[in-house]
Design a protein around this nucleic acid. Structure first.
Lengths: 122, 122
DNA sequence: TTTATATTTAACCAAATGGTTAAATATAAT
DNA sequence: ATTATATTTAACCATTTGGTTAAATATAAA
């Protein structure tokens, strides 16, 4: 049996289980932002956002670069690999969906292009 | 922007964020089992397992087939596609990991074989 | 050096989570 | 008809979660 890092999986899946945190990651995927910038589109308070950021940081999904009094947050998508690995383990149980995913990945395989921020799927 | 089903993502990621529930899914991926059989390897009580099953059922990750007084639970891996889709959206940010995943998927692309329960990665 | 800005910490709260034991329910077996 | 088995429901509990407001901290700007 492959031994997964259960604690890391707990942290990753838990971090992704909240819509505000996913929205923050979506925002950060477009480029780094300060805590205030991240909080802006949400109706919740700054401390609430600060807590979400700590959860994301704890799951290693973002990293913090302090720049004076501003915290610049950066997306760290590598941390999602563990989760993808875990799910992918069950690939043999969803071959039809695998086809779809494989096709999707083929279409968008890094060729040197398609590394810009514009995503045609959006 | 692609509109994801946030509620479904909440449910899926939350369901996967617990190690007992992931273990239950791992067990069910080998074949269906009753509630009692699922509870056996865990030290927690039957009602606790029953609650976990309800969470997994709510996320549509398992389905229940009542057979007399026995509930046979079945794995429904399709429900994980939403989560994979969401994560995959960030593919352009982890090209090196994508390579690894694409290679993995290529190696195991459904050819008619490789649909048995033996996984060489384990 | 005083003031404004960015963010975190503290203290608090209601709801959800993951567990328990005991009782209820439903079906199967004797 | 009675008893055993499989599972769920109910009632409870401690901890965690996701939010709040007010105060503290740290840095930049005037």
């Amino acid at each position: 049996m492959v031994k997964y890092n259960e604690t890391a999986l707990d942290a990753t899946f838990h971090a992704l289980a909240d819509p505000t945190r996913r929205a923050i990651l979506a925002r950060l995927s477009l480029g780094q932002a300060s805590v205030g910038e991240l909080a802006d589109p949400f109706e919740i308070s700054l401390p609430a956002v600060s807590k979400h950021l700590k959860v994301l940081e704890g799951a290693d999904l973002i990293t913090r670069h302090r720049d004076g009094r501003v915290s610049r947050m950066e997306f760290n998508p590598d941390a999602m690999m563990g989760a993808v690995d875990w799910i992918t383990h069950y690939k043999k149980f969803w071959e039809s969906q695998l086809d779809r995913l494989a096709r999707y990945l083929d279409e968008t395989k890094p060729t040197g292009e398609d590394t810009n921020a514009t995503n045609t799927k959006d």
